[in-house]
Design a binder for these strands. Structure first.
Lengths: 208, 208
DNA sequence: CAATAACATACAGGCTGCATGTATGCAACA
DNA sequence: TGTTGCATACATGCAGCCTGTATGTTATTG
């Protein structure tokens, strides 16, 4: 309560230290990779010692999981933020796709969430995280579209997972320099292909 | 030419040692993961020393790349082997999908090719490998289908990449215990959705 | 003022890559 | 055809780094 480095509640100390560690780890994990980033480097960046790290996290992997969790939540927040509630099912899905692809342009996010994440934590753990954050919007959108019969009836779980996989690969390809318009067109074609009725119109997509 | 351990040409020695190392590494990389497998363990399994490993491969990652290369070729071979040449475009794609999902059931293959591979070698390197082996059949099949107007005209590169991503995720989900029939149905629906005309019939898929 | 949380420090074990040493195959030449 | 010199195929040892844990110290809390 008094000066900066003076008396601090234990809860505040923990919260601040954890936040510093996650911030530092996020920076390094996105600049380099999980494997190339050592804990000495992380704690140096965070301004603490390895003792603090291993006091708050079980191991390096647990810290990584915390970073992934936070980053997945950030992506989900960006998507929710950018999709106004009153749109047709189709337009809502397209808006969500665009928001996702845009969010994934943050440097290093694709490696963190799409490459290192699955490899370090496993696909199952990543699915669990995605379902809690990002994929929820997608799955709910798809289920809503299916209810509205804009999408043929299919196993929701599988459909969500496979479309999400396509989104992920698109994000990776775009970051690698591929044509965003091409990938966007194919993504929309894939989603439109699921509707029994033909898509409403056929105006060319904005380049994005 | 004489006894087993006796005089051997240098070329034969190199070939045999490299093969032993790749075989041992493949076994361990599929049983455990890339990160959890150390070079001492690999060379013990192969019956050589670490000196031999670092003589034939630049580093652990290069050995891993050789394993991935070989495994990707094996998958591609299984697919080519299982797809008779005279099928309709649609049926050829379905047969290829089934062959791929079946091939990916080999223990540890999904982790090797779909998790560790992209993380360790990068998506770009994996794309390069895939395009040389597995994806070639898929892309050629799709291009052929597009030529036959069974598939709407779309950027071939992007379409191939996104469908391949869906296949990959399906393989991962199935290995994790998800319903293979569900994922197969969605994969077929995604591909059928690309055709302007409705799919020929609607018999239920064999459970596989 | 005790007990516990939040660190800091020191240590053990393992792993990677390289440098150096050694033996074997090979090729040319006498 | 023998041997002489070099390149290849390893084996061994070393240096540096990293992870996880155990132990010590300081600040908080009840």
């Amino acid at each position: 309560m008094q000066q900066e480095t003076g008396r601090r509640s234990n809860r505040d100390r923990t919260e601040a230290t954890r936040a510093d560690l996650i911030r530092a780890a996020r920076k390094l994990f996105t600049e380099k990779s999980y494997a190339e980033t050592g804990t000495p480097e992380i704690v140096a960046e965070a301004g603490v010692t390895r003792g603090a790290l291993y006091h708050h996290f079980a191991d390096k992997q647990a810290l990584f999981a915390a970073v992934v969790e936070q980053e997945a939540a950030a992506v989900a927040a960006e998507i929710d933020h950018a999709s106004p509630p009153s749109l047709s099912a189709r337009e809502a899905l397209i808006a969500g796709s665009d928001a996702y692809l845009k969010a994934m342009r943050a440097p290093g996010r694709t490696r963190l969430l799409l490459l290192d994440g699955p490899a370090v934590l496993g696909r199952a753990a990543m699915d669990e995280i995605d379902n809690r954050h990002g994929n929820r919007s997608l799955r709910e959108g798809l289920v809503a579209a299916m209810r509205a019969q804009a999408v043929t009836r299919l196993p929701a779980e599988a459909l969500t997972a496979l479309l999400a996989a396509a989104f992920d690969r698109a994000a990776l390809a775009i970051e690698a320099g591929a044509s965003a318009a091409d990938y966007r067109a194919v993504l929309i074609a894939l989603m439109d292909g699921l509707s029994p009725a033909p898509p409403p119109s056929k105006r060319p997509a904005p380049s994005r």
